[in-house]
């Protein structure tokens, strides 16, 4: 095999690695409890449910949903969650944040709270709950290197489950507007015959995109989505 053949082979393998991904199955569903809609001056804020309640939602996932909701021609005005939390300190800290919509009227009566929320134009608070977990895995892979070169041999696989739930609170009606949930399961593979070829199932990324898409449609009340 000539050096040129080698280069072509490596390039094809690299391309295959880039375009390949593991198997993914996803499910998104919503439950509507009230009418929704959003005006041009209104905004949403994405919050993680409190870690005091055992929630493990990743910071990266919250940022992903924030960015995905704000993106595109139908993008929503999203207030960064830390900015919102700081502006209402100490009423949205993990320990003090309202756990149910029935606590909202009392919260809004506290000095300055309703004014701060109105000043930022926050119409909806979206509470995220859930996490990405590795639920199974197996296989065996070993790599070695020596004076004559190196390589890997074997096969490994793992399964991840990204299960997230978003509860939408309407701060005008002080009531729950409904929930949107997504469950994405994917299996990644790593076969190796000298070179490992990762076939990664990006479940969290998929869960972010699908949840953000459905949340946007849910809030603007877009039946076509």
């Amino acid at each position: 095999m000539t050096p040129a053949d080698h280069s072509i082979k490596i390039a094809v393998l690299a391309l295959a690695t880039l375009v390949s991904s593991g198997c993914i199955t996803s499910r998104v569903e919503d439950t509507r409890e009230g009418l929704t809609g959003i005006n041009s001056g209104e905004a949403v804020v994405i919050m993680a449910k409190s870690y005091h309640l055992g929630n493990e939602t990743e910071e990266k996932y919250i940022r992903c949903v924030e960015n995905a909701l704000a993106r595109g021609s139908k993008g929503l005005n999203v207030i960064p969650h830390q900015e919102f939390v700081d502006s209402l300190f100490p009423w949205f800290e993990p320990r003090t944040a309202p756990a149910e919509t029935k606590n909202l009227p009392k919260l809004m009566e506290r000095p300055g709270v309703a004014e701060k929320i109105a000043a930022q134009g926050v119409r909806y608070i979206i509470w995220l709950d859930g996490e990405t977990e590795r639920v199974a895995g197996g296989g065996s892979l070993s790599c070695a290197a020596g004076p004559g070169g190196g390589g890997c041999f074997g096969f490994a696989w793992w399964q991840k489950d990204s299960d997230y739930n978003a509860a939408v609170w309407d701060l005008v009606g002080l009531e729950s507007a409904g929930t949107v949930s997504t469950d994405v399961t994917g299996t990644s593979f790593l076969p190796a015959l000298i070179i490992p070829i990762p076939l990664i199932a990006r479940t969290q990324s998929k869960a972010c995109k699908s949840l953000a898409g459905h949340l946007r449609a849910f809030i603007i009340n877009d039946e076509s989505a």
Binding site: S142, C143, A144, P147
Partner: peptide
């Protein structure tokens, strides 16, 4: 994942 030594590194 095991990795061997690289004496010529």
């Amino acid at each position: 994942m095991n990795s061997g030594t690289l004496p010529h590194a």
